[in-house]
């Protein structure tokens, strides 16, 4: 007895293909096939005895309601730079890997796909719970001087809006489609090639003795993923101030509501120098450095501290 996936036991092309791994166990008058790897939903299996088809067994894919949806697409800024590097898509439940290229695309207002805009690749960039997908625009087309940029130009064009589109057919981890597709539309501005400069941020110190937030505004949108981990507030002794951090609209600001009331004395907002803007420029370096430009010199290697005093 042999078991093979598919509905044809041994059509010409399948001669010599190995049968499904497993062992035969006699159970009274029955002969049982115990598979080494579990049968897969949505697959038909052909059972042959002495080469003749004895049965075709179809393991149905369980039906269920489509419940997973896209919960956010970042950036949330209405306008992104022409050299935008990265987007994030958040889902409400774990997703299946290997389908992003088929089900996510950048498209113009007319629906036409912007070909070659997203970095293709076998490696999809998911977080550990498979709920956040990171998408990169092709860096070869964004970096100056490279063949990709010279020959194909930027994936996005200033003044030409585009949309990130997620198809409803994108399967979640159970194999079910999404409840609905999702999209976000962006205007495209000019290039952004400057460092992220904490020296230009505006910091609003909270009153001492209150739980009002400390707030910082950046002057331009920063990367959502990095923003969520690259800022920290420390108190007079240098100890971290706990509380609830929130990223502001369009990722242009950030605030921390402290867990306890502010004490008077020197506090610091500490920025990790890897913090990037939407075009991959960070506190420490620009995305592609013009070696002839003093402005592009690498900057801060260590964390940047902005002092404030709750009063």
């Amino acid at each position: 007895m042999r078991v093979r996936p598919g509905t044809a036991a041994a059509p010409g092309g399948r001669d010599g293909w190995p049968p499904m791994a497993g062992r035969l166990v006699r159970d009274g008058g029955c002969l049982c096939f115990v598979p080494r790897f579990a049968f897969l939903d949505g697959t038909a299996y052909t059972v042959t005895v002495d080469g003749a088809t004895a049965a075709v067994l179809i393991r149905d894919r369980p039906d269920g309601p489509a419940t997973t949806e896209v919960t956010a697409i970042c950036p949330t800024a209405a306008e992104v730079p022409g050299n935008l590097l990265r987007l994030y898509v958040w889902f409400s439940a774990p997703m299946s890997e290997g389908y992003a290229a088929r089900h996510i695309r950048l498209a113009g207002d007319g629906g036409e796909v912007i070909a070659g805009a997203l970095l293709p690749g076998e490696h999809e960039l998911w977080d550990a719970s498979r709920r956040r997908l990171t998408l990169l625009l092709d860096p070869a087309r964004i970096k100056r001087g490279l063949a990709g940029h010279r020959e194909a130009g930027y994936p996005l064009r200033s003044g030409e809006p585009f949309r990130l589109v997620v198809d409803p057919g994108f399967p979640d981890a159970r194999g079910h489609p999404l409840r609905a597709g999702a999209e976000r539309r962006y205007q495209v501005g000019g290039e952004e090639r400057r460092h992220v400069d904490p020296g230009r941020w505006t910091l609003t110190a909270p009153p001492a003795g209150t739980s009002e937030p400390v707030q910082v505004t950046f002057g331009r949108p920063l990367d959502h993923g990095l923003l969520a981990r690259c800022l920290q507030v420390t108190g007079p002794g240098g100890q971290p101030v706990g509380g609830t951090a929130r990223i502001g609209p369009e990722e242009r600001s950030w605030q921390l509501v402290p867990g306890q009331v502010w004490t008077p004395g020197p506090h610091q907002l500490i920025a990790d120098p890897i913090l990037e803007d939407l075009a991959g420029n960070s506190v420490s370096r620009v995305f592609d450095r013009d070696l002839a430009s003093p402005e592009d010199q690498p900057r801060q290697i260590g964390p940047v501290a902005l002092a404030f005093h709750p009063r």
Binding site: L85, R86, H123, L125, W126, D127, A128, S129, R132, T134, L136, P139, D223, G225, L226, A228, R229, I274, E276, G280, S282, F287
Partner: peptide, 29 residues
């Protein structure tokens, strides 16, 4: 589970060391 992850793209063994190239899902490095 962590949100920041690093994906191994390639590996090679040379000179008593395993060399591992990776791709972050956040910073570009």
């Amino acid at each position: 589970q962590p949100i920041r992850t690093s994906t191994v793209t390639d590996m090679a063994y040379a000179g008593g060391e395993l060399l591992v190239a990776g791709l972050s899902n956040e910073e570009f490095s």
